[in-house]
Design a protein around this nucleic acid. Structure first.
Lengths: 187, 187
DNA sequence: AAGAAAATTTTACAAATGTTAAATAATGAG
DNA sequence: CTCATTATTTAACATTTGTAAAATTTTCTT
């Protein structure tokens, strides 16, 4: 997915302000296993996935909890760092060799104060991410693990194949044994 | 909580653009039981709570699920309507006689395109709400019902007293019987 | 292709949560 | 203040989910 398409899918933006934005964006590659963002660390960059998949997780006292999967076109960002300049909640792990568009937070903030069209692009960016986060919250609050598993199968069929079931189980908030039972019940 | 304080707490804003914003805001009162927002309806207004408390809920096939409590200073809004111009997920019920600041979505959108400082205020508004929603999601994903109950006791002690336990149980994602057991275990 | 390592499923049992109904406590109307 | 209504807790039992460990399948390395 190329950068023009990604920027426009956030909110259509005219040629000139888009060129300004793009001049601050560079392409970077990372191998499978690389940590793109680090929990407890104040991150400086925002990424968009050009090609590949990633996983967000946090470590609790007992175990590791996966809570998001990112795919092409998705923004990879610590909102806590981007918005509040505070340490990230999440580790983001690259699940297969992937290519990203990278941009620096601070430079983006500066552009927000200089160009109204970029400010409104940034507003739409936050608004879109808000709707996605709300959707995730509602999914968790209203649907059973089994329903959410089917949702995942439907919305991210490619992902299931590439991600360990232990990660999917923790994403669903159940044990891997329970997930096995759900999967077994479908046959 | 007065409107200047609320607007500035979203993001400090200069006198002139703030005056423009305020010229579109009016004060409204509603009694206990009033429905401020309606699920399945495309809502036109955003509210800020001057005084009072509210509850967000949705009806599923079987039952009613409470998923948010709002208090003074909080924004009461259907993000789905505000951002995507689509029907609201939530009903918002006024839990005791309350006073709100009301503003129209469409007028706000217009201001975003005319004043860069208001555009950035709107960006910060979405960003702040995003952090709050993320916090709610993380709370649900990482903490047990019991921990979340204690969190609620700590952060909203006044609320617990004024809200039925059946609502709190559904907010925590457990049955009222389980909540009783949690409460009993603390004595 | 064979063997080792890792991932997934299955089993047996324990613990937690849900369901239904009854008992108790709190609230509100007259 | 009293009675009726509503809210909350408790009890008994059923169901679901978790835990630990073994069995099986898949993946990776050589």
């Amino acid at each position: 997915m190329d950068i023009d398409q990604i920027l426009d899918s956030v909110s259509p933006i005219h040629k000139d302000p888009k060129a300004i934005l793009k001049s601050y964006i560079k392409e970077v590659n990372f191998p499978k296993g690389h940590l793109l963002l680090h929990a407890q660390k104040c991150e400086k960059s925002i990424y968009f996935i050009k090609k590949g998949i990633v996983r967000a997780y946090s470590n609790t006292a007992e175990n590791e909890v996966t809570f998001w999967f990112g795919k092409e076109g998705d923004a990879v960002i610590s909102m806590k760092s981007y918005i509040a300049n505070q340490p990230s909640y999440e580790n983001i792990e690259v699940l297969e060799h992937s290519c990203f568009y990278e941009m620096n937070h601070t430079e983006l903030q500066k552009l927000y104060n200089e160009h109204i069209e970029i400010a409104n692009w940034g507003r739409k960016f936050a608004e879109n991410e808000l709707l996605k986060t709300e959707e995730r919250l509602i999914s968790r609050q209203f649907r059973t693990a089994s329903e959410r598993y089917n949702e995942l199968l439907k919305n991210h069929p490619h992902l299931i194949k590439r991600v360990q079931l232990s990660h999917i189980a923790s994403y669903l908030g159940i044990t891997q044994v329970s997930l096995s039972r759900i999967r077994a019940a479908k046959n």
